[in-house]
């Protein structure tokens, strides 16, 4: 039994390997981009719109609202990153209803890549909001003694993000595989349904945690800038 789709390799040349994770990821990307293009090529701005446009608008405005509720006042700036995180993980996870499908989020490489992107996005947005110095000073809060703990916290939460998603999705797939060998009829279906729920929840958790981390970085930087302005 393969624990990760990384182990299914289609083509390999030196360190370059085209495995199932990458192929499935491309498939998911293709689905997302093509469906988006199909719907958004004929967008209407009047009151009556198509059902698909309405569906996509609900998703996009829903993500926007969630980002705003977490504390980011300009959600349009972050929806590209956070929305893509959610949609990619969500579509990857609900793909398990397809027979023979192995979600790319069940690969630690994928979740590590996503966690790494969050790890990089947090300072990126923090710095873009309040500058490099302002962002770095947030690691010295409340005192400089907290600097190592803040760095450890940054790394550990990135690690936690990656492992949490990987563990949930991988375990779901593994349970289904084990149950298939024991009782092949009813239980795998129930576990698959549970897997859909878990996948949706994990997509939500991953993206909302990423939003919270970014919001914390942006807010810290803003507060720092504000207090600086007040003292001067």
């Amino acid at each position: 039994m393969d624990l990760s789709p990384d182990q299914t390799i289609f083509w390999e040349y030196g360190f370059i390997t085209i495995n199932l994770t990458l192929v499935t990821t491309w498939g998911v990307m293709l689905v997302l981009i093509v469906s988006s293009w199909l719907v958004t090529r004929k967008l209407r701005t009047d009151i009556q719109i198509s059902r698909w446009q309405c569906f996509l608008e609900m998703i996009v405005t829903g993500i926007n609202t969630q980002i705003e509720e977490v504390g980011l006042s300009k959600p349009e700036r972050y929806i590209g990153f956070i929305g893509t995180l959610f949609l990619f993980i969500f579509v990857s996870n609900i793909g398990i209803i397809l027979p023979g499908y192995s979600p790319p989020t069940g690969s630690l490489s994928t979740t590590a890549a996503l966690a790494l992107s969050v790890f990089l996005a947090v300072p990126f947005f923090g710095i873009s909001e309040s500058g490099f110095g302002g962002y770095l000073k947030s690691y010295l809060q409340p005192t400089w003694i907290m600097l190592p703990f803040n760095i450890i916290g940054e790394v550990s939460r990135t690690l936690a993000l990656a492992v949490r998603l990987f563990g949930n999705i991988m375990s779901g797939g593994m349970i289904v595989a084990i149950l298939l060998s024991i009782s092949p009829f009813i239980f795998p279906i129930i576990m698959n349904m549970l897997g859909l729920l878990t996948g949706t929840v994990q997509a939500y958790i991953f993206s909302i945690l990423a939003t919270v981390y970014i919001a914390a970085a942006v807010r810290n930087s803003k507060e720092k800038t504000k207090s600086k302005v007040i003292t001067t």
């Binding site: 491309w26 997302l32 981009i33 490489s109």
Partner: peptide, 26 residues
């Protein structure tokens, strides 16, 4: 390699979805 590839894939997806989904819809 997969991690890097997935990172690049993700960034490409972010750009494409911004181009084909979020911007037009918003």
């Amino acid at each position: 390699f997969t991690v890097v590839a997935q990172l690049i894939n993700f960034l490409i997806l972010v750009w494409l979805l911004k181009r084909f989904l979020y911007k037009p819809i918003l």
